[in-house]
Write a protein that binds this DNA or RNA. Structure first.
Lengths: 356, 356
DNA sequence: CTGAAAGCGCTAACAC
DNA sequence: GTGTTAGCGCTTTCAG
């Protein structure tokens, strides 16, 4: 089985065939196909016709080799080999969709690979071997150093994540500090005082959200109690465990700011199981605004990350890098979406107007 | 801007450079890198060392051209140009993740493209131009004819969808009839009599689920009332609209079988808004078992599609096709997951045991 | 306007 | 063991 996978067994049509059939040389076919005006109008249409009817398509491998060009971008989603999770995080998956759309818009192909987060070097492999002109990496995690090394090697790479000091690579990310501030200010405005924070600050993005959280508390003359911080990972069930942990500690709390919507949802379920009402007893705000947040019950208040814009910004930044421009990082504005889990706010999911 | 995107501006390392540095010919380097035993042990390690330290990686474009091989598979997610929806359906997105994992496992790269569903021919373009050895298409929709034409042209293609009569192409799909039967039998067993069906039977997969639905009803001595069928599309808000439609018709109903989890969730929200309790007044069963279904409140009863297995099966089928094997379609077993929206059943989302 | 010829980076006979 | 040579399918001078 798969003795020689990928062998081009069937004899494929190539330019020489078209040339023979049209009674011209391959040069002429090449010119005709590339729309050169150096070829007779009549000859060109004849060749074009022939090629179309035979569904001939230029071999892009050969073309790229000859032209030293390439219109493929690598997209890498690292995975953690210790927590053998598959690619399933809804936010990352949406980002993938957004990137696919943005790249298609720009006429680029997308080569998707999963890479062990411990050996991010592998992400550069597609670049080193000339398959892609650069790499977009979704998920910075804690690999700042490795990413810096890639950038130092001049691998064109753009990362979705937080902007860090001494960073050589280019990042595009949501404004995490502002996001954290927004969520916390909102909860404070709703009269909450003991706001728990769910998220692992070892991750740069979470650390910045936590900073925004602290700033908002400070501005309201409150301090961030360490007791109210649970270092929940980005795995769904961790929301429930974080709630258990909080209860175990016996700290009173009347609100939760969770660093992902999934975390928020599982936390809410856990709270309910413990007999607490959301938002009456505990207000909850999530992060990301994944599509399902508006369908959750009660609809989830959350900080929206601009996924659509993110895809476009990532692609734009990468193309600039490839063009030789310096790596300029950007933060995209985040936005608070107030729904039901944080108190008042609209209850019905905002429906689009497309007909069913 | 982007004057020449994808131009290999920087002079890249190539085999000749390694050869010169190692004081041998390119043939020797080529042999060393491919692990040929025709090269001196000592020379080989020297070359390997050199290549590694310089992060040299064989140009796979040139290699593929020369070897007439290729280890890239195209994955196509069609979009409907009339409903300008972006790639966001959670089920398709998960499938993408599953495919990425399966392909990575097999050592294949994945080239992702979005294609207008009206011109599926474009899906073959990556094949015709030799970029991919075959195509996996997620979402059969109503393009049976176009798919048959592709298969007739001998484009190696595997489609996620329903098996249809007179089908030339290979499909892998869930057992939709069984899925429909499972859901409906379950609702009947729960004592429901007026079971609404939400889904557009113009789509083959939905049609088969509807057939299973009718079979289950018939087996219980009941008939499928046309009044209870709403042709809801696979857009989230359609669940709510379907409920409205049902109410407008004034048909009594005590259960809903929705053809996607998203549909089920938005339907449940709509039912609640109309003052109906789920599952007390109306039991609901969804389809797909996307991850969030277990976090929904109440946790959603649904028919699970085996995503993990699906990815592997699609890849396996494609590789077989490429190897010249005949296209043999498969149906994957579906499974009823009873949670809370259909009556009794566990309430807590089944938690994994990974630590947070 | 068109064709012949060289060569993109690599591999595989075929020599030595 | 290793180097020389001839292409893989295409584009592009350079001649006509």
């Amino acid at each position: 089985m798969h003795k020689n996978p990928g062998e081009k067994a069937r004899q494929r049509l190539q330019m020489a065939d078209i040339a023979r059939l049209a009674g011209v040389s391959t040069s002429t076919v090449s010119r005709a196909l590339s729309g050169s005006k150096l070829v007779n109008e009549e000859t060109r249409t004849r060749i074009l016709e022939l090629a179309r009817s035979l569904k001939y398509s230029i071999n892009s491998g050969a073309q790229n080799l000859r032209l030293k060009q390439n219109r493929t971008v690598g997209v890498v989603v690292p995975y953690d080999s210790r927590t053998p999770q598959h690619l399933s995080d809804p936010f990352f998956l949406s980002m993938l969709g957004s990137l696919a759309d943005a790249l298609t818009e720009q006429g680029f192909d997308m080569l998707l690979s999963r890479v062990d987060a411990e050996t991010l070097d592998a992400a550069a492999q597609a670049f080193d071997s000339g398959r892609v002109i650069g790499v977009i990496l979704i998920g910075q995690w804690r690999h700042h150093e490795q990413l810096n090394q890639l950038a130092a090697r001049h691998v064109p790479i753009v990362v979705w994540g937080a902007q860090l000091p001494q960073q050589l690579y280019c990042t595009i990310g949501g404004d995490n500090a502002a996001g954290g501030r927004l969520a916390t200010e909102h909860l404070i405005a709703r009269g909450r005082r003991d706001i728990a924070f769910f998220g692992d600050t070892k991750l740069p993005e979470v650390a910045q959200r936590h900073q925004g959280y602290r700033e908002a508390l400070a501005a309201a003359g409150m301090a961030a109690a360490a007791q109210l911080h649970v270092a929940a990972a980005f795995l769904p069930q961790c929301g429930a465990e974080a709630v258990d942990e909080l209860l175990r500690r016996g700290v009173p709390f009347d609100a939760v700011f969770a660093c992902s919507d999934l975390l928020a949802m599982t936390a809410i379920n856990a709270l309910r199981r413990h007999g607490m009402r959301v938002p009456e007893d505990v207000a909850v705000v999530g992060y990301d605004d994944i599509e399902l947040s508006s369908y959750f019950h009660p609809p989830l208040s959350t900080v929206r990350q601009p996924i659509r814009a993110a895809g476009r910004a990532l692609v734009e930044a990468l193309l600039a890098l490839v063009d030789g421009a310096p790596a300029v990082s950007r933060q995209l504005a985040t936005e608070l979406v107030v729904r039901a889990t944080s108190g008042a706010g609209e209850t019905a999911g905002e429906a689009a107007k497309t007909t069913c």
